[in-house]
Amino acid sequence: MNLPNSITMSRIFSVPLLIWMLSPHFPHGGWHGEQEILTSLFFILVSISDGVDGYLARRRGQITTMGMLLDPLADKLLITSAYIALVQYNPHVVKPWIAVLVIGREFLVSGLRSIASTEGFTIAASDLGKLKTVIQIVSVVAAILAHGWYEWRFGWFIMPVDLIAVVGIYFMALVSTISAVDYFVAFWRKIEKASSGRRKHDNDFVLSRGKKDLPAAKNLT
Rank of each mutant, 00 (worst) to 15 (best):
G51H: 14
S179H: 00
V185N: 11
P72G: 00
V167M: 12
D204I: 10
S139Y: 04
I144D: 02
H147V: 06
V109Q: 13
G120S: 05
L22T: 09
F187C: 02
T64S: 11
W97M: 13
A125P: 02
I48N: 07
S179P: 10
Y170E: 12
I37M: 09
G129C: 07
F154C: 01
A216L: 05
S10Q: 06
A57Y: 03
P91S: 13
L207R: 09
G29W: 08
K200G: 00
V175R: 06
Q88M: 09
I44W: 00
N219A: 14
N90R: 09
K211C: 02
L101E: 11
T118D: 15
K130A: 04
T64H: 06
I115D: 07
F43D: 00
A99F: 13
S40M: 06
Y183C: 04
V109F: 04
F121R: 03
I12D: 03
G51Y: 15
E34K: 01
L73F: 12
L73P: 00
A217C: 05
P215M: 12
G129Y: 12
L18M: 13
G33P: 05
W156M: 05
I103A: 14
A57N: 01
F107S: 01
S208L: 07
D202Q: 09
S117Y: 08
G33D: 10
L18S: 02
E106F: 15
N5W: 11
H147S: 15
I79G: 01
T133D: 09
K130P: 03
G51P: 08
A143M: 08
E36D: 13
G197V: 12
A216H: 11
I48M: 06
G33V: 05
F13K: 03
T39S: 10
A99S: 15
W31P: 02
G111I: 05
S110I: 10
T65K: 12
V109S: 04
N203R: 09
L22K: 08
I164T: 10
W188V: 04
K218E: 13
K200C: 00
S196T: 12
E119C: 14
V141H: 14
W31Q: 11
R59M: 03
N203V: 12
S10D: 10
V87S: 07
S6N: 12
A173P: 03
D75H: 01
V167P: 03
K193S: 11
R153S: 10
A180V: 10
K76R: 13
S10L: 13
W152A: 11
F121E: 01
K76N: 13
S49N: 14
D50F: 02
V138Q: 08
D213A: 15
S179Q: 02
S114E: 13
P16Q: 00
V100S: 10
A142H: 06
T80F: 05
F13W: 15
A124H: 08
Y183L: 04
Q136N: 08
M1R: 11
F157P: 02
R60S: 07
L22Q: 09
W20K: 06
R58Q: 07
S176I: 11
H25S: 13
A74P: 01
R199L: 11
I79C: 03
T80G: 04
I123Y: 01
A142Q: 07
S6K: 14
K76Q: 06
D204C: 00
F157S: 03
H147W: 14
F107E: 00
S81L: 06
F121W: 01
Q35D: 13
V46C: 02
V87Y: 11
V166T: 10
L78Y: 02
A165L: 02
T133Q: 05
P91E: 02
Y55S: 01
